[in-house]
Design a protein around this nucleic acid. Structure first.
Lengths: 262, 262
DNA sequence: TAATAAATGTCGTTT
DNA sequence: AAACGACGTTTATTA
């Protein structure tokens, strides 16, 4: 019935016939778009367990990575789903629109059988943003500059960012024995790349200094395989979780607020 | 821009202005409808943890029970969410449409800040259907270990899992005549593969024992073609439905709870 | 590929 | 509201 087609790869159908919906959904799946389908359906699942959901009106999400979720009007979790990597097939049969999601690896099948459809949306979404739980690397750096003992007792940071040939160094300062110390922060596990990056930074200091430089990798975890490379290069690892940094920053904000009020 | 209003309590807006979207969303929240909002947004969460998601295009689901989920175009789990019982508030400010979901009990706040909106759907969905989940093979095994008579009167199971060369045996024990008994569970029909798997398990016992071993296949059904192979190998079939196991386990949970209280 | 541990787990049940 | 267990848990990491 209602249909809107824009410059963007987007189609919105309101109260489509099953035929119209079928054509749209089939094309959406083949184009790997994201689909939202709202309608009355029956859902069957067969795999690790089996389930049967009788007819009712639901919101179905098909994502471009091959994941599917069936949402009832209540409850935060989908009543049925299939993780990424499922293969979608759709067909029109006996006045029902079927969507199947297979997962070969686990031998799981999810089938949604639509009796009528209220809305169909096909849309191409762009989302490359970073998701930071607790604190970003930037936040971790801020926390260390505010509370240098997070890195080590007696650590004295220099300017927050020092440019060297190969990029920007996260943290530069002097330890309690006044030894030049360079640190690289990672919000996830330290891997080979992070260690080599720190090496490039340290190599870019001039030769005279190089012997006296401490290299430290700061991260919540050290990859098992990275331990050896770390030792080889003579670097150190300091465990620091984004959670703790987030709390330090929260405390800092509170402190600033209090001081302001005095 | 595009808008469709039908007899049913349903509104679909395609490419609305933030003002149009705001009016619709506000009314949808107050009427406790289900909302689907697609658009570019920034998401902040502060509560048990904290998180920040930079701008990107996402699908946001607001349900009538006060739950909210933000879905990125990939990944089956929402990147941010709030369980049922949250309080939704929306406001228009500085060319941004804000939606906040508070959970007083856990002191959690989720904020979605829309930069532009591609689609808004308000819809009243009806879904009173029953959802039935039937047991998995693992559940069937648990049920038999809890209530061995499901397999046979007088059956005494041994350890829950016995490792043999070819894998793990589902059930091992002694029958009422103290004959060693090995059972393979299938939640569907018994087929050729299941029977041969049981054979491999039994073959992996040492020769001296082998003569005295009973082999039993436990499943809701026995495949027509499998009867002959079963007889040839001297195995038996015990009908057991996942539904019954599911009920036994439910009873067990209740009983454990009661015993705990004594 | 399988085993193990953590999760803003969620969900139901009972205290 | 808090505690405990189960889940088609999911997700990530390690062997």
């Amino acid at each position: 019935m209602g249909s809107c087609l824009d410059k963007r790869d987007k189609i919105v159908l309101s109260n489509p016939s099953l035929d119209e919906a079928y054509i749209a959904i089939k094309s959406g799946i083949s184009k790997r778009l994201n689909l939202v389908i709202i309608g009355k359906c029956v859902v069957d699942y067969e795999g690790r367990a089996s389930s049967k959901l009788e007819a009712g009106e639901r919101i179905v999400l098909l994502k471009s990575d091959g994941s599917i979720q069936i949402h009832r009007p209540k409850e935060s979790m989908p009543v049925n789903w299939q993780p990424p990597g499922a293969l979608f097939k759709t067909k029109l049969e006996k006045d029902r629109l079927h969507i199947r999601a297979y997962r070969k690896t686990k031998r799981e099948v999810l089938e949604v059988e639509f009796i009528y459809i209220l809305v169909v949306i096909l849309i191409d979404l762009t989302d490359d943003a970073e998701f930071n739980l607790y604190a970003s690397e930037e936040d971790m750096k801020r926390a260390i500059l505010y509370e240098p003992s997070l890195l080590e007792e007696g650590f004295k940071p220099l300017t927050s960012e020092k440019k060297v040939k190969s990029g920007f160094i996260d943290i530069v300062g002097f330890d309690k024995n006044n030894v030049l110390t360079v640190a690289e922060i990672k919000k996830d596990m330290v891997n080979r790349d992070a260690i080599l990056q720190l090496k490039r930074y340290i190599d870019s200091f001039n030769l005279a200094e190089k012997g006296k430089i401490r290299g430290i990798l700061i991260a919540p975890r050290l990859g098992k395989d990275s331990q050896r490379l770390l030792s080889t290069l003579g670097f150190e690892f300091k465990r620091l979780s984004p959670q703790i940094c987030a709390e330090i920053l929260k405390k800092k904000r509170r402190k600033l607020m209090t001081e302001f009020l005095i």
